[in-house]
Nucleic acid binder design. Structure first.
Lengths: 342, 342
DNA sequence: TTGTAGGCGTTATCAG
DNA sequence: CTGATAACGCCTACAA
């Protein structure tokens, strides 16, 4: 198992009768190297097929050019789109992308963060595990000045760079949309309530109800652990068995919303007329379910791209940048699951 | 931006009055180091919070502990599951996973392979881009003895390690299932016909027809570029406008199959009685569409895991292993889109 | 503008 | 069983 080493800056230096440092500097367009020298060096580098040994450079600089991405699950439409956007942006800038998944477990999250740290990533993008409530495991990166950007599921009270959507506004608009379609008793499927995104979505939901003077009824507000299809079915079953069932559901994700539609159909409840349903994320499955599911668009690919751009920006600036939160736009995508015929 | 260096083997060596080499060897359980020494060294390593600098080790060993995964698209259910399986297995073994996507373009594939090579990955898992017909860009890895494992979309005639499913058998069984449900005129949606998986699926389809003495009719066999939802709609529209439309469709993926159902429903064609539809991959959307889509299960997570295991096995063995093709089992998952009432 | 020299932290090769 | 020494390939004060 021998790896061919390839051409080094020493080889080029020898051939050109200059020192290796000159070659090194020329290759990186160091200002103090003559234009002519730079040109000659680069020309030979190409001719000889020189390739930077990033490992050696990493050792010297004490960091790699790998950006780590930690997410709860890779195989979810929203997340894999986010990764896709991040990967494309990173690669375009000459960085690699390392991925790992917490499976929504805090222990995994801690382990993976540690592994990332030890492999000397040069930047980290994180969407928190459902379980995560403490953030000490990120401290080593802060101490280290390794840029971190939190995306989507973020630590609300941590002073850190973040890329999010306005969950409150999105939820407000989604709920408002249901009200505009005539719903007066709207249930809510939320996620773990310590997670900011779910807390905010619930707040948006409640604020919309308030604005329209509709009562907030705790008995039709649920919080799922995972908002899985299974949970969606169970929650809907509970709702529809109530003496006064709701006439609308705002679900904090699409999976549970789809289940709601499926369950409603199975017991002869008409969607959207008896029960209007709106989800969140605008996953591809919105277009598969019948009737098509209204949802809130989520710019996942863009979020991934911007997170990488933030990492690069932070790295590029010498001083510590003030932490910044970038909020991306979302909109209600109205489809047949909420559009009632007049 | 200063990175804390942390404890090195020199620090441990100094404190224990042994040489750094002894520490290094003790840490890796080198056989020629005394049990006692090993114990002492490891104990101190833990106490002092020593962490291996993988970059330095990589420089010395000329390879990293990063496994690269190149896939067409990350944000597809089947692929993200495959990555998920690979990531979990790699991480459990102490490896990181680098991902990149070709977007089904050969140029991207070549670029990404080059980037992987330059970042000195220690193993590579590849599922080919739709466009790929030549494989020279992998040569550098072969010359280098860096293990490659091809998964799913593989180079048929290249002597290499592969993890696949038996596409011919799967397609045969799927087609047979349609026949058993009474279909006599079965159309086929295939992918790029130079890709082995699609060629094999078509062969399986044709062989099933032959076995049951059904004619093979080229006019109801399509090959999509991407097998997208859009293509699915168009192909179905063509089929249903024929003087003698088919009574069954075997699609080489689920996306196009779902479109077929949607189109059929939109023009009042009953699924499964007028038109039975079966897809491939058993994506989550099979359970969303109404009627639920029959499909062929695809052990994507397992495929990812096994690919990583193969990489590790190849690395572990000193001599060049004979190339091996591992074929995973699939089965027909029959649902309402094909199950006709007697 | 360029060269020199030392070091990043580890591992492999020799000797003992 | 253990130690000294020399790489791995690059970068960066400091010197010239």
């Amino acid at each position: 198992m021998k790896k061919k080493t390839g051409v080094t800056i020493y080889d080029l230096a020898a051939e050109l009768n200059v020192s290796p440092s000159t070659v090194s500097r020329a290759l990186q367009n160091h200002p103090s190297i003559g234009k002519a020298t730079i040109k000659i060096v680069k020309k030979l580098a190409i001719e000889r097929g020189y390739r930077l040994n990033t490992i050696a450079a990493s050792l010297r600089k004490r960091e790699t050019n790998n950006i780590g991405i930690l997410v709860p699950w890779i195989n979810r439409p929203f997340i894999s789109s986010l990764i896709s956007g991040a990967e494309a942006a990173a690669r375009a800038a000459g960085y690699n992308v390392l991925i790992s998944q917490s499976h929504d477990s805090i222990d995994n999250e801690i382990d993976n963060i540690k592994a990332f740290f030890e492999s000397r990533i040069c930047g980290l993008i994180v969407s928190l595990a459902m379980e995560t409530k403490e953030f000490d495991h990120f401290d080593r990166f802060f101490e280290n000045d390794t840029p971190i950007v939190f995306v989507d599921r973020i630590p609300e009270h941590l002073d850190a760079h973040k890329v999010i959507i306005d969950n409150h506004a999105a939820a407000f608009k989604a709920t408002q949309h249901l009200i505009e379609q005539g719903c007066r008793r709207i249930a809510h499927f939320g996620g773990a309530s310590h997670q900011t995104i779910y807390k905010e979505r619930r707040r948006g939901y409640e604020d919309a109800l308030k604005k329209y003077n509709l009562p907030i009824d705790e008995s039709i507000i649920f919080h799922g652990d995972r908002l899985s299809a299974d949970e969606g079915l169970k929650m809907t079953a509970l709702l529809l068995k109530m003496p006064v069932p709701p006439d609308g559901i705002f679900s904090a994700n699409d999976t549970a919303a789809v289940s709601a539609i499926q369950y409603a159909k199975s017991v002869g409840v008409n969607v959207p007329n008896d029960l209007a349903v709106i989800g969140f994320n605008n996953d591809p499955l919105c277009l598969i379910i019948d009737p098509p599911l209204s949802s809130v668009s989520h710019p996942a690919v863009e979020m991934g791209r911007i997170a990488v751009e933030q990492i690069l920006k932070i790295k590029a600036s010498k001083e510590d940048l003030l932490t910044q939160t970038i909020t991306l736009k979302t909109e209600v995508v109205a489809r047949a699951s909420t559009l009632r015929k007049p």
